[in-house]
Structures are given as structure tokens and as C-alpha cells.
Simulated assay, not measured.
Amino acid sequence: MGHFNKYLVTMRENKLYSQGALAKALNVHRNTQANYEDDRDPPLDYLLNFCKELDISFVQILSKRIESSSITDGAKRKALEELSYQGSKFKSSDSQNNKNTSDNTLEKLLSNQSSNFQSYEVSNDLFKPMPKGSIVLCDTLDKEITSNCLYGFSNPLTNEFTIARVELTGSSLVMCFDNPAQENRVFMLEGGEMERNIILQTLGLVGKAKFSLGKL
């Protein structure tokens, strides 16, 4: 996996998209998405759609692509200078870019409905993409279960905060952890929507996870 490909994975995970969900949103095959995150160089139209879907600056993505290229240092400097944004030269590092992206997105979310959003620290390593210590922003008013979305759960007894992807079928509710070392939790539904809501309340559903700030 190349440096730029790893960067694309980080951006996707920061915005809480699964690989399959992003592939669907960008109208590409999941195998194609996997290749772009491994070692294949994504085309320009893909990167444009990627930035639009994840609300990321295209200048930031293009600059990262230039930094990861095999051209000479002099050529990199010249290209980055020509990507100057709002009259200033665009200079970046991994940590600064990630911090700026997190800060801008967090500010946007909080400015929209500040009373709805609460930050939580993940208490365990059940959900592999977001290990213990990760900070997650949840919308406490958005508890509708949607396919391929992530949700936060705060155990009513221990206050342990867990992230999981929730899948609903006609007869079951499944907490998916995307972790080979952790079995998914399956709850059989026999009482319809009322039983589903009781189970979610018992599990301590906080709301839909909107954004990950990583470990602070």
C-alpha cells in the first residue's frame, strides 16, 4: 500500500464510511475501491467525487498526491507552490492536514446543531477501525437505524462506550464490529419494532456516529 493510498483510507475512516458504503456512494465497484486503497493510482474524476462525498478540500488531496509522487523534490516544491490557495502557499504534513480536516468538520457539525452532538471516547477495541481512546462525535437526535452506518452505544451500567455498525433483518438485529477477533452480537426479534427499540435502549444507543477525531 502506497503512502497516498493509506491517506485515502485514513480520510474515509475519519468520515466513518465503510469501504463498501463509499464505493456505493461513488458508483464504483467495491473491488475498484479496494484497489485504490491498496496500490492503484485513482483517476482524477474519482478524486473529485471522493472530495465532494467526504467534504474534503481537493487542494489538500492533490497536494498529498504530489507529495507522495516519485518526482524530484524541486518539481514537488514548484507544483505545491502553484497550488497556492487564497494567496498563500499550501504546505502540509500528515498531522496538520488531518488536524485541519477534523477541526473544520467538527466546527461545521457543531455550528449546525450544537446541542445534538456529543463527543465520546471509545472504551474498548471491539470495533477494529476505531480502537480504544478514539474520540467520536455522535448525533444524539439521530437514532434511526440505517444500513452501513455506525452508531455509538454507552452501557447504562458501566458507561463503557462502544462503536458498532448495526444491521437489521426481518428477524434479527446485529451489532457488527468489523473485527475478526470479535464476534458480532446477534439479537433475535420476535416482537417487531417495539422489541427492537427496547433492545437498542437496553444496549444504550446514543445515536449515529458522525465523525471520528482519532486519538487525541
Rank of each mutant, 00 (worst) to 15 (best):
G207R: 01
S92T: 14
R12A: 01
K91L: 01
V122F: 00
T146Y: 11
K132N: 11
L110T: 09
F177R: 00
Q19I: 14
K24W: 02
N116Q: 13
L47A: 03
F161V: 08
F211C: 08
F211D: 03
D139K: 07
T140I: 07
R196S: 07
M194N: 10
Q33H: 14
E167D: 15
K128N: 04
E37W: 05
N184K: 00
V136R: 00
N27Y: 00
R196P: 01
E167L: 14
Y17E: 00
S115E: 13
R165D: 02
S115H: 08
S172I: 02
P131Y: 04
C149S: 12
I66G: 08
A75T: 08
T105S: 07
Q86Y: 11
L173A: 05
G87H: 01
E121Y: 04
L109T: 01
G74K: 14
M188L: 14
L44I: 13
N148V: 09
L62D: 12
L110Y: 04
S95K: 15
K99F: 09
S93N: 06
S134H: 06
V136S: 00
I61S: 03
N97T: 14
E13W: 02
V136H: 00
S114T: 11
Y120S: 01
M11C: 06
Y46V: 12
F4I: 08
A181C: 06
N27P: 00
L141R: 04
F187H: 03
V174H: 08
V136A: 03
L48I: 15
G20A: 06
C149K: 11
P180V: 07
G2R: 10
S63G: 15
V174M: 10
D178N: 06
D178K: 02
V174F: 09
C51N: 02
Y46F: 15
L110F: 03
A79S: 12
N31S: 13
K78Q: 10
K24I: 10
S119I: 15
E107I: 10
K6I: 06
L80H: 07
Q118G: 03
N35L: 12
T10Q: 07
T140F: 05
E121R: 06
N31H: 05
A209D: 01
P131E: 08
S95Q: 13
K91C: 00
E193K: 09
